[in-house]
Every structure is written in structure tokens, then in C-alpha cells.
Amino acid sequence: QDRPEVSRLLDHLRPGDVLTVTRLDRLARSTTDLLHIAERLKILGAGLRSLAEPWADTTSPAGRMVLTIFAGIADFERSLIGERTSAGRAAAKAKGVRFGPKPVLTPEQIAHARQLIDGGQSVSEVARLLGVHRATLYRALPQ
């Protein structure tokens, strides 16, 4: 997403300008990226033309139509990916897979920390002893 030269290029365009590229893959890294750039060009009032892909010409009605179709396909693909990801996560959770980072403290360490705190040591001292931040200890200890 962070492409300073592309951003500089787009910042220099004025209404009526046509951005001409040799190939679309030289401008955008993905279909979604291309569609975002094309939308930004549309807002600016500029066009897009590719020398290698004659169908990619937003200065003509046919080129705008093709780009609109690609936008629909990209949106459909994003939806499918999201559904597959959700289904995969649900299946993994059903099998007992835990997501996220592994717990820093074991249940035994948490029990030991509770005993030390109940025994009068401060949370800061116990956290230093266990090699964790105070906030980690506070999250691990039930209130």
C-alpha cells in the first residue's frame, strides 16, 4: 500500500490528464490495487490507458465497462475468500485449535504469582521475578 512514487504520480494529475502505462502490472500490484487507483483517477477526472492491454482504457465507454466488470469480479473474489476463511477458522476452532500468541505464563506460574501477591509481594516484584510486564500479570490473574 505504501508506494510513494505512485502517490506522487497521482498527486500530479489534473482533470483531463490520461495516465498511460506500458502494462497494468507496472502500475498496480493486484486487481484490487488497480481498481483503487482507477477509482482515484476517476475522482480526479483523469483517465487510464495501458499500451499492452487495449481493453484497459478508461477514456472510452467500453474500457470503463470492462473495468467495472473487473471490479465486480474482484469484489466477488474478496467475498469468497472471506467466507472460506471464516469456515476454516470455525472448523479449526471446532477441532480445538487456539488462535493468537501462546500464553506467556503457564498455569503453574500464574498460581505461584497469586501466592506471592497474596503473601505480600507487589505486582511489580512478582512481574520482575517472572520476567514479564506488570500488565501481562494483571491480565493473567483473575480479579
Rank of each mutant, 00 (worst) to 15 (best):
T22M: 10
R23T: 00
R23E: 03
L24C: 01
L24P: 02
L24D: 06
D25V: 10
D25H: 09
D25P: 04
D25A: 07
R26I: 04
R26K: 03
L27I: 05
L27A: 01
L27H: 00
A28F: 07
A28C: 06
S30G: 00
T31H: 11
T31Q: 14
T31M: 14
T32D: 09
T32M: 04
D33C: 02
D33Y: 07
D33K: 02
L34W: 04
L34E: 00
L35G: 04
L35Q: 03
L35A: 00
L35P: 01
L35I: 02
H36I: 00
H36S: 08
H36F: 05
H36G: 11
I37E: 06
I37H: 01
A38T: 13
E39P: 02
E39T: 07
E39M: 03
R40K: 12
R40S: 11
L41E: 01
K42L: 06
K42S: 03
K42N: 05
I43H: 02
I43T: 00
I43S: 02
L44M: 13
L44Q: 11
L44Y: 01
L44I: 15
G45Q: 08
G45C: 06
A46F: 05
A46K: 09
A46R: 03
A46H: 02
G47P: 03
L48I: 00
R49A: 12
R49T: 05
S50N: 05
L51P: 00
L51R: 13
A52Y: 02
E53P: 03
P54A: 10
P54L: 12
W55H: 14
A56M: 14
T59G: 15
T59N: 15
T59I: 13
T59V: 13
T59M: 12
S60T: 14
P61Y: 03
P61G: 05
A62T: 14
A62I: 10
G63N: 11
R64S: 13
R64P: 04
M65W: 14
V66L: 14
V66D: 14
L67Y: 09
L67E: 08
L67D: 06
I69V: 15
F70L: 15
F70S: 08
A71P: 04
A71N: 04
G72R: 06
A74V: 09
A74S: 14
D75C: 01
F76A: 15
F76Q: 13
E77C: 04
L80W: 07
L80H: 11
L80D: 11
L80F: 08
I81D: 14
I81P: 12
G82M: 06
G82K: 04
G82H: 08
G82L: 10
R84F: 08
T85S: 15
S86Q: 09
S86A: 09
A87V: 04
G88Q: 02
R89K: 15
A90E: 10
A91Y: 08
A91K: 06
A92H: 08
A92V: 06
K93V: 04
K93W: 03
K93E: 09
A94L: 07
A94N: 10
K95L: 09
